[in-house]
């Protein structure tokens, strides 16, 4: 589904990703871990198509197509979803209005008519229930005054609505208490299928107890320096990142 080859990317001429290789197949869950500043969020942003980042070398192949030249919204239309670490506020635009616009824009890109209001409403209700969201929440301005947990829950709600092929969850666990973490993780698990894939970016093992990865990668200094199964996450939790750094620097 996703194949990243020798990816180099920089922001304002500062190299951040220095040769990433990663392959994610349909039905898989990958976790990307690593110390602060290793390039985890940059990788997520580059895959999603954030314009501040310049790809200086390598390629991003999604569903057999090089998406490097595509605008962020075109990548979204193809099924790339990013759950933001810091979701932005859009005052005056309700959660409902925002997701309705997003759904209909994606449909328009595929040559489909707007979703009938009745179907939209039903879909919104079903997915809100999945995330145990209060109905009142849906009429609030997007992310305005939301708690950390509400913001993340809203991200996963949007993911549930958009049904992406590839979902990248950027530190979705940060700012969540244990109950919110469980709800969010359950939501993600229910959305998982053999046809889609999830990339979880996290500092901690905690989230991975709920969303169990098939592969764990350690990102350090712009490169994937170690890959393994879920047991690698436990090892990191126990031993920290220093031994990895030492290995790399040795």
């Amino acid at each position: 589904m996703l194949k990243i080859n020798n990816l180099h990317a920089s922001v304002e001429d500062k190299g951040i990703l220095k040769g990433i290789n990663l392959e994610v197949k349909a039905g898989e869950v990958h976790a990307i871990m690593g110390p602060n500043g290793s390039g985890k969020s940059t990788l997520a942003s580059v895959i999603a198509g954030k314009e501040e980042y310049e790809v200086t070398d390598g390629s991003i192949i999604f569903e057999g197509e090089d998406i490097e030249e595509l605008a962020a919204e075109e990548r979204a239309h193809k099924g790339v979803f990013l759950s933001f670490q810091y979701p932005v506020e859009i005052p005056g635009v309700s959660v409902t209005n925002f997701i309705k616009t997003a759904i209909n824009e994606s449909r328009k890109a595929k040559g489909l008519e707007d979703m009938p209001a009745k179907d939209m409403l039903k879909l919104i209700r079903d997915k809100a229930d999945l995330l145990e969201m209060d109905r009142k929440f849906l009429s609030r301005s997007l992310n305005e005054g939301f708690s950390g947990g509400e913001k993340k829950r809203n991200e996963i709600f949007q993911m549930a609505m958009l049904e992406p092929k590839l979902a990248i969850l950027d530190e979705t666990d940060s700012g969540l208490d244990i109950d919110a973490l469980r709800i969010v993780a359950n939501g993600v698990n229910k959305l998982k299928s053999k046809d889609n894939a999830v990339v979880v970016i996290t500092h901690y093992q905690r989230l991975l107890d709920y969303i169990v990865p098939d592969f764990v990668h350690v990102l350090y200094n712009g490169k994937i320096v170690k890959s393994g199964g879920k047991e690698l996450a436990h090892e990191l939790e126990e031993k920290g990142y220093d031994w990895i750094k030492e290995e790399v620097n040795a």
């Binding site: 962020a72 919204e73 979204a76 932005v88 925002f98 997003a102």
Partner: peptide, 15 residues
């Protein structure tokens, strides 16, 4: 903000 626009873009909404 460019962040607001990118957020919308990422959800499939053009600029």
């Amino acid at each position: 903000g460019e962040d607001q626009i990118f957020y919308c873009n990422q959800r499939g909404i053009d600029t």
